[in-house]
Design a protein around this nucleic acid. Structure first.
Lengths: 226, 226
DNA sequence: TAATACAAACTTGTATACAAGTCAAGAGAT
DNA sequence: ATCTCTTGACTTGTATACAAGTTTGTATTA
């Protein structure tokens, strides 16, 4: 487990949740790894309570398996969940961007434009981490513009299954293309052009195809055998 | 709060979660009502810990609002969330039943047939409660057949917002029509007819339209004022 | 009367103690 | 050597104690 800095503004519970989640996505908590509430609690410098609450939440999202009185494990990567994530993203992102075409206010569009400008800025300096953050934020903003923020929270939760695979594959999605896609999405929303919006979202999602066969060969111990 | 019987098989946490959720849906815990972890804990006969974990989870689903050191309240009915639930159900149910047309096994179909037969049985005895349970189970089985069980869990969570409105409106959806709809859905899946499936799901969902204006006039204290 | 101060009774957040179950290592008997 | 039993160190589940903050009612004072 990798240490994560705690913000002053967050409660112990929020910190524990963020730290554990980030470690699962980054595979610093490895699929299949045994974890202990006490161990994580002392590592993070908080008590069992906030750690336990976080683990319960991640258990509900099928990211941690709890065996009472025996132990808890980071869930192995299960193609079932990865495919559900891909399915959900495809169905929802399209429906939501179409909705955003109808509902986006000038303020929403201004915010999206600022985000894309920042993406272009960090593209020049090859700041992949920043672009990753802005990428997540961009998609969230579309959900907000479509008045679907709660749904976005659900999307984020299930997407962790996919993000984990992305980490393993060190998915070589060209940032250039991603940023360009976002610009096109933005224009589609500005033009209220649902057809174009749907088209570019589909193309965008297709960029993230992962060769699971390859990964399974490289990291067999991380995968659920079905 | 109405007492809920505890099953032998469930943990304190599962019991607390189920009891609180059922009370929120049935409006026995009223929108806007002040609740206390201690009060609920002693009412249910468990300690604060499992109650607290449940409240955290419901807080995440925007069904309970927590004000640290001040108190927690059952969330007022917010049309924002109700509309998100309706949107999600429409988008997902259609996509998922189409998927089920491709993926349903003979076993899945047999299970659906048994469920519909039971619905018809209870229709004769006007057992609305049983039909309600079988209804929920029927839709869940379609998600399972489409290999989208995780997504169904998310659907169920957000649907609580809608279920609460249904309770208030004592929505006079004719059970006869619901059961008939389910039979048609089942046939569409058996025939792998996506067009028919999509059509009947849309018609089915339209039966649940609620006149929010009316409700707002009758129960103004239950609604969020935006 | 009205304003202020204060104490008591609440709230949730966090830490810790205890209960109950699992599992593995090791002693001892066969 | 092998089987059996036991013990102890773990696990999570639950209960409780304490910390920190808010609110409310009630004195007390101007």
């Amino acid at each position: 487990m990798r240490p994560i800095e705690r913000y002053n503004s967050e409660t112990a519970r929020e910190y524990a949740m963020r730290a554990i989640t980030e470690n699962i996505i980054s595979i610093d908590l490895e699929p299949g790894q045994l974890i202990s509430e006490n161990e994580i609690a002392s590592f993070l410098g908080v008590s069992r309570t906030p750690v336990r609450e976080s683990i319960q939440e991640l258990n509900k999202a099928a990211l941690i398996a709890i065996y009472p009185q025996r132990g808890s494990y980071v869930s192995l990567i299960d193609s079932k969940y990865v495919e559900e994530a891909v399915f959900l993203r495809k169905v929802l992102d399209i429906a939501v961007i179409e909705e955003a075409c109808d509902l986006a206010t000038p303020e929403d569009i201004a915010a999206l434009e600022e985000n894309v400008a920042l993406q272009e800025f960090y593209l020049k300096s090859n700041n992949t981490k920043k672009i990753f953050e802005l990428d997540n934020e961009f998609h969230r903003m579309i959900y907000v513009a479509a008045k679907k923020e709660t749904i976005h929270n659900m999307r984020r939760t299930i997407m962790i299954h996919f993000d984990r695979v992305r980490t393993l594959s060190m998915l070589a999605v060209k940032d250039t293309k991603i940023v360009a896609d976002h610009g096109i999405m933005l224009n589609a929303i500005k033009d209220k052009d649902k057809t174009k919006a749907k088209e570019i979202v589909e193309k965008h999602l297709d960029r993230y195809r992962v060769d699971q066969e390859e990964l399974l060969k490289t990291y067999p111990q991380y995968f659920e055998t079905n």
